[in-house]
């Protein structure tokens, strides 16, 4: 064993980290993640206008390439409604109405799931495929990857709700040490009062989900309206 491997965690030092620190981290990370997401979808915005302007081989958008406006609109309405519900749930959480937050959270989760289901239904019923020109490529790539982002948000909502539901009877303090993950030598939680992190995580989620819903509205406008 080399000398740089001899140390180990002084658990007495690290197991009392104030949750405010992680709250700030989550808030910052939510904004940074939103900026990265924006640049990701900017590539598709660029692809849309670039390929549309070039219209190579006259195959930008053949006549039969028309996704269902109804299904697309319903999907984006579900996304926006879910983001609004999360925002309302955050307000409930801030006001101490934990039960109402959980209710709105589960509804938001369901609506996000509905949005993904509607998108899948649209792919299954549309009368064109990925090989039908530039628009079809952008449409399928953009909506497909947006759906992947929706799944990531669904995961985020679910983890918050799962924690809030599992420990709904614990007002403050920490659950048993064994509930922290990973290290079998841990004697306690490395975050003081980890359950208090539901709020900052919910705040970060609310911001990011609203931002992603905004990208969804832009997606809908470009792909269905323009």
């Amino acid at each position: 064993m080399s000398s740089f491997a001899e140390h180990s965690t002084d658990y007495a030092v690290v197991e009392s980290e104030p949750p405010e620190q992680l709250g700030r981290n989550l808030n910052t990370a939510g904004h940074l993640l939103a900026s990265a997401t924006a640049f990701f979808f900017l590539a598709f915005v660029f692809a849309y206008f670039y390929l549309r302007a070039l219209n190579n081989a006259g195959l930008w958008r053949p006549r039969h390439v028309n996704p269902s406006l109804t299904l697309g609109t319903l999907a984006i309405v579900a996304v926006v409604a879910s983001a609004v519900l999360i925002r309302l749930g955050l307000m409930d959480h801030r006001a101490g109405r934990r039960r109402q937050w959980r209710l709105k959270g589960w509804l938001a989760l369901g609506l996000a799931g509905v949005a993904v289901a509607l998108q899948i239904a649209e792919w299954a019923t549309q009368g064109f495929g990925p090989a039908d020109g530039g628009y079809a490529s952008v449409y399928l790539g953009w909506t497909g990857l947006y759906a992947v982002f929706l799944l990531a948000v669904i995961y985020w909502i679910e983890t918050l709700l799962a924690t809030a539901t599992r420990y709904r009877k614990i007002e403050s303090g920490a659950p048993p040490a064994g509930h922290a993950s990973g290290d079998s030598h841990r004697t306690g939680h490395d975050i003081h009062d980890p359950l208090s992190l539901v709020r900052p995580s919910l705040e970060a989620l609310s911001f990011y989900w609203a931002f992603l819903a905004g990208i969804g509205v832009l997606t809908w406008f470009i792909l269905y309206i323009l």
């Binding site: 064993m1 080399s2 491997a5 001899e6 140390h7 180990s8 965690t9 690290v14 980290e17 992680l22 995961y155 679910e158 983890t159 799962a162 924690t163 539901t165 599992r166 420990y167 920490a174 659950p175 509930h179 922290a180 993950s181 990973g182 290290d183 030598h185 841990r186 939680h189 490395d190 975050i191 980890p194 359950l195 992190l197 995580s201």
Partner: peptide
């Protein structure tokens, strides 16, 4: 997976001694 099941957040893992 632990978070999916509702276990609370933590920061550190496997910060034990040894190569």
């Amino acid at each position: 997976w632990a978070r999916v099941r509702g276990y609370p957040p933590s920061l550190r893992e496997k910060e034990t001694a040894g190569v």
